[in-house]
Every structure is written in structure tokens, then in C-alpha cells.
């Protein structure tokens, strides 16, 4: 099958690549663009390791064709650090609260938590748990991931208050 040109914005940069229509977005990001932050975990739409932000939605990039993302605005974990290169509040939270062990689920967790905090800047513990229900972690038991998200929420809310 012929490859078609696909254009999208990834982590703020306009990118262009060639994709067979059946190429999944996860493979486009990893193999064409070299962005290996999004991980392939289950390949069956269950684990969330491949989660990226696509036009303001958290999506499992193993369940979207690259051609469907034509013109989309995508953020992967590679685009999460602050402009000066320092860690974002969420990344810092995962570090401070020990929110990862092997780290395999972490890029997906961070991208999902990022969107969750955009929609709900002050989530309760239950809301965090339901909010990351599509992301599986085999190591941590989730407790510290929940704390990491809460850490980021507190830090971002503090920054917002200070700015007001």
C-alpha cells in the first residue's frame, strides 16, 4: 500500500513524515520521529503506556492510525519539561514522591495526569485514581503515583495563586 504524507505538530514542532495508512500513531512517533517516550506495553488498548496528548485529549496512540492524526497537535512526554529545560511539576512530583520504579508506565502516566490536571486542577484522591484508571503500573501499587499527581496539583495551584 502506498505511503501518504502526514503532517502534524509534535511537541510544538511542525513535523512531516510518510506513513502507510495502517501505521499506528505509536509506531509513527517512535520509528519515524524517534520519540521513544511513548511506550508499547500491551498493544491491545488496555495499559495506557502509549498515552499521548492529542488535540487536548489523552489517547492511547496504539489505537489511532497516524493518518487519523493528520493536522493534529500532539504532546509526548518529551515535550513536558519546562521551557528552560527544568522538570515540569508533574515530572518533579514523580521524582519527589517516588512515583516510579521501572519507569515503563511513567510516560503514559505523566501524559494522562497532565490532561487530568488541565481539566480538574484540584482532584481528590478518588478522582486521581479514576482519572488514571486507563494506565496500568506493574510496580508501584499506584500509591506513590497518586501522591505524585497530588504533588503536581499543589505545586501548580501554588504557582497560580502566587501569580494572582
Amino acid at each position: 500500500m502506498n505511503k501518504t504524507a502526514v503532517k502534524m505538530t509534535v511537541n510544538g514542532q511542525a513535523v512531516e513524515g510518510k506513513a502507510e495508512p495502517r501505521l499506528l500513531l505509536i509506531h509513527f512517533l517512535r520509528d519515524e520521529l524517534g520519540l521513544t517516550g511513548p511506550h508499547v506495553g500491551c498493544e491491545t488498548s488496555h495499559c495506557g503506556a502509549c498515552t499521548v496528548d492529542l488535540d487536548g485529549k489523552s489517547v492511547k496512540s496504539c489505537t489511532v492510525f497516524a493518518v487519523q492524526a493528520e493536522g493534529a497537535n500532539i504532546t509526548t512526554v518529551e515535550g513536558m519539561a519546562n521551557a528552560d529545560g527544568s522538570l515540569s511539576a508533574l515530572q518533579e512530583g514523580f521524582m519527589q514522591e517516588h512515583g516510579l520504579q521501572c519507569g515503563y508506565c511513567t510516560p503514559g502516566m505523566i501524559m494522562r495526569a497532565h490532561r487530568l490536571l488541565q481539566e480538574n486542577p484540584n482532584p481528590s484522591e478518588a478522582e486521581i485514581r479514576m482519572g488514571i484508571a486507563g494506565n496500568l503500573c506493574r510496580c508501584t501499587g499506584y500509591q506513590n503515583i497518586v501522591k505524585a499527581v497530588r504533588y503536581a496539583a499543589d505545586k501548580l495551584n501554588g504557582q497560580r495563586e502566587a501569580a494572582e
Binding site: 488498548s45 495506557g48 485529549k57 489523552s58 489517547v59 482519572g131 488514571i132 486507563g134
Partner: peptide
């Protein structure tokens, strides 16, 4: 139904 990611799509 499913989880937040699936529900967005």
C-alpha cells in the same frame, strides 16, 4: 465504559 482515554475517542 472503559477508561478516560477510550472515552475521549
Amino acid at each position: 465504559i472503559a477508561d478516560p482515554q477510550v472515552r475521549y475517542c
